[in-house]
Design a protein around this nucleic acid. Sequence first.
DNA 1: TAGATTGTTAATCGATTAACAATC
DNA 2: TAGATTGTTAATCGATTAACAATC
Lengths: 221, 221
Amino acid sequence: MPRPSFKIPKVPEMTVRRLSIYTRCLAHLEEDGVKTVSSQELAERFALNSAQVRKDLAYFGEFGIRGIGYYVSNLRAELQRILGLDREWQVALVGYGNLGSALFRYRGFAQQGFRIAAIFDEDPAKVGKAVDDLTIFPLRDLPREVRARGLQLAIVAVPAESAQLVTDRLVAAGIKAILNFAPTRIKVAKDVRLKNVDLSIELEGLSFYLAQGVRQLPSPR
Amino acid sequence: MPRPSFKIPKVPEMTVRRLSIYTRCLAHLEEDGVKTVSSQELAERFALNSAQVRKDLAYFGEFGIRGIGYYVSNLRAELQRILGLDREWQVALVGYGNLGSALFRYRGFAQQGFRIAAIFDEDPAKVGKAVDDLTIFPLRDLPREVRARGLQLAIVAVPAESAQLVTDRLVAAGIKAILNFAPTRIKVAKDVRLKNVDLSIELEGLSFYLAQGVRQLPSPR
DNA sequence: TAGATTGTTAATCGATTAACAATC
DNA sequence: TAGATTGTTAATCGATTAACAATC
């Protein structure tokens, strides 16, 4: 059981999301050899308020130095620790169709320490096939592989019809966080974290503005 | 130039997103032969408040009947019109790598009326290749094809390094809304709508909660 | 020290929810 | 009519922002 011990108040979802964004920015700054950065400088890059940057960080501790700002390398390390990016997570990928295989090839995940350590698919034509150094398992092997490989997260990339069923089996097998790409909302018990990423809802949001004649100006946040 | 004429106040981003969700739910209800639905019934399906459902709808007009609720078929049609889902949108897909080709095959887009009408890629090995009934174009053909095919939206699925450059060319060519899957934030002039869908930020959000020991309970909204 | 920038408190803003008159 | 449910106003809640004492 990781961290806590000294309380962390309930952190807004948007703060966590911004933390991700800050972390990347800091990694770039570090590459560029920048040593310190102020909340003002950080905020400007994302059209945010400097108080918001400071408040986001203040949920987790005091990382800055008055009169100076933040040490880039130090802050990046702290944020990576907070986000759990200072370790490797073992990820199950369920569904190896077009989207599933694209996600498997997507470099972004491995770069942040998310290692797809097992692939599952119900299609008998796919089960047993080798994908790089992995073999595609049938879904019934879930409980065994979750234990054997220490899988903690799952990416769901199956058709809408089977998404809820697959999810229930993931949760039963002990998976603690799920990223769902199936074009349907799925539900989980409340000690499991779930993020529904419904790709076409994103496009529908855009078409709304086009349908209104684009106006409406970019939303403030 | 589409709609307006009678004012629409600034609509919160989250309202538009929920409109998408209601629309799908209504389509399902209609398939099941349900004739009317109340804001209460609709809200329960998504753990929302019924007042919120009514308020979301009230931005656009009065669609309900007191004492009855909403006619499913009528409300679905109204919402589809509002979201711009009552017509077909011509979409440019830029980048035909793993993610790009998965998105091209993704049925969800076409189902909602988003038709990928042109594919662009800078890789000389890909330019000229046929993909179903389309041919992959080089980026320099953008302005011509935007005009010829009436492209209004673009999906960006290129590497992080080229995302901003590609975006600038899309905007210059007259594209009005962009869905960006490249793992970097891009920026556009403020009369263009942009949605950054950074896949690994979603996973990072999940790892945050795992790193804290999952607790933190699912966020209220 | 003087200047800069933090961490935090208080004010503001916006979104969610409760409550209810209107009305089917 | 009596019961149900809307559309809307007012209250609540939470997140963003301004302001500033603390301090490097």
